[in-house]
Nucleic acid binder design. Sequence first.
DNA 1: AGTTTATATCGCAATGTTACGATAATACTC
DNA 2: GAGTATTATCGTAACATTGCGATATAAACT
Lengths: 104, 104
Amino acid sequence: MGVSKFENFSTKQNLIASYSKALSHPARVAILEEIIKKKKVTCGHLVQNLSLAQSTISQHLTELKNTGLIHGDVLGSSVEYSINQKHWQKQKSVVEVFFGKVKF
Amino acid sequence: MGVSKFENFSTKQNLIASYSKALSHPARVAILEEIIKKKKVTCGHLVQNLSLAQSTISQHLTELKNTGLIHGDVLGSSVEYSINQKHWQKQKSVVEVFFGKVKF
DNA sequence: AGTTTATATCGCAATGTTACGATAATACTC
DNA sequence: GAGTATTATCGTAACATTGCGATATAAACT
């Protein structure tokens, strides 16, 4: 029991769910806002600005990377994270279409 | 450990996270789509259309109700669920502002 | 090569989510 | 009132998520 039954739902429904899940924790929202503000941001910068351990932030970054919202460019010994414009726009439009289904 | 540190983040960040969490499971996306399509929908109707147990669907409905996205009107022995237009619009605008922060 | 710096990954504990069956609660029907 | 129908809640099992410290990995610097 307790196992999510993703196969019962459409690809589109799973896509919306997966995109929304990326934003479903305030730490990830905060990370994205910081990336947007600074354009490029390292893990170390985020560690200094958010009150979370380095390993925790790295984990959130990996999640955001996996959904496609950001990408990391290796720069010497550090990694610069920035918004993946293509996926951002895709998620933006998918979510907006969903919310637009309700007519006022 | 493993306890989410919501207090480290702003009210706005927690709001976006909480709204997004409501859409972070395909069953809830499917439920919302069905409600939008039919305008009003009972729990029983959803049980017939989604392959999930009655108790599971009732649980998802309660979650959607708690975030404010839908409300239920008692109608005899059943309950008719519909979109809470006010909260829907609020969530729509909060999410759109967030996505709009990235300029292309 | 050894040291420092930056990030990722592992292992684990605490908590949260998802699903179901069983049962309770409420409102109609006879 | 007894029986039926509809929804909510309880209890519980199986995962999943979040967080941290410790450790691994990789690049840069002496």
